[in-house]
Simulated assay, not measured.
Amino acid sequence: MNGTAAVVGAGIGGLATAIGLRSIGWEVTVLERRPQIRPEGTALGLRPDAQAALARLGLGEELRHRTVPYRKARIRTPDGRRIADLPLERIERKGGTPVLMLSRISLMGLLLGAMGDTAIVTGTDITDPESLCKDYDLVVGADGLRSVVRPAYFGTATRPRYTGIVAWRGVAGFEPPEHGETWGPGQVFGITPQEPGSTNWYAAVSTPEGHRETLDDLRARYAGWHDPIPRILAEADEDAVLRHEIYDLSPHLESFVAGNVALVGDAAHAMTPSLGQGACQALLDAAALTDCLQTAGDVGSGLHVYDLRRRKPAQRIVTMSRRMTGLAGHHLAGPRNLLMRLLPA
């Protein structure tokens, strides 16, 4: 079964969905609000299931050329004592391949390169989302946390909720002796590989909504933490560091589909970055939606199966990520380490 589809949003979920639908014969138009697609961001970790989703879209081989494996990392206290190991070895054993790291810019480049002649219409403000259903057989809301598609078709009960956390991200100019996260009261610092020759760092700090801090304020927060955290922040360039208030969606949506409309990615299940699963879940959405529509007799039945397949698993990740955000910034070693053992591989 195929037809015409409008994909609203040209982020990871939107581009992956467009690639998938095109591969099974759909005529796809991507509608993007921004005048230009200019990817930004630092490292993403792709778990084995997300790698399989990209392979389903025909991008598995190219992915391997852009990534580095992430196999070992520790969680430590600010003075450097070990709390636990991140479950990277368990993820690799279960999935048959390690977590692969690359930058968001590189992943977006991979997806854009696979779009072929699929139309991407930039500078498009969707002022009447409901009218899209008259012009297309399928409408996909892939327009992120502040989606215009979601409230038009799914109501306004589910909305962005500030988590109390601000995330800072940057790239370190040297290779640290080891990777992992450091957890202290109200704040976390992480160091990961990013792609060949590049190291990613991030900080998550408890901050009132709307309160602005400078990079010097961030340096003061982490003064006295173990090496190489002070060095990374001392060498960071404020113009190159990204800062974002973190929101997720609450409460959970009762469905990811309404009529001939489906939500994917952050439009459906925006989550905190604590588990590093946002991009992975968007790719899983795209691959599942493609599979469900390919085998369905009509759009309605395909979307019904998509909702059954993706909604509860994605929402479980949202809940676990929210809990991890709360635990990571506190010295609650027992509950925190228990949750580490329960994290999905």
Rank of each mutant, 00 (worst) to 15 (best):
V8M: 05
V8D: 03
G9C: 00
G13I: 13
A16M: 00
G20I: 00
R22N: 05
L31M: 04
E32D: 02
R33K: 06
A43D: 15
L46W: 09
R47V: 08
A55T: 08
E62P: 08
R64L: 03
R64S: 10
T67G: 02
R71A: 13
A73K: 09
R76P: 02
G80N: 08
D85N: 12
I91W: 04
G95Y: 09
V99Q: 07
L102F: 09
S103D: 06
L111E: 03
I120N: 00
V121D: 06
T122I: 02
C133Y: 01
D135N: 07
Y136S: 06
L138A: 10
V140H: 07
S147P: 02
P151R: 15
A152N: 11
F154K: 00
T156C: 12
A157M: 15
A157Y: 14
G170F: 12
G180Q: 15
W183T: 01
V188F: 01
V188Q: 05
W201C: 10
P208W: 04
R212M: 13
T214A: 03
R219D: 09
G224D: 10
H226M: 01
P228E: 01
I229S: 00
E235V: 06
D237C: 04
V241H: 03
I246Y: 05
Y247W: 14
P251G: 12
H252Q: 13
F256Q: 04
A258S: 12
V264K: 00
T272Q: 12
L275S: 06
Q277A: 11
C280E: 10
Q281P: 06
L284R: 11
D285M: 03
A287H: 00
L289M: 03
A296T: 09
A296E: 05
D298L: 10
G302F: 15
R310W: 07
K312C: 15
M320V: 12
S321F: 13
R322D: 10
R323P: 11
R323M: 07
G329F: 06
A333K: 03
G334F: 08
P335R: 12
P335I: 10
N337Q: 14
L342K: 07
L343C: 10
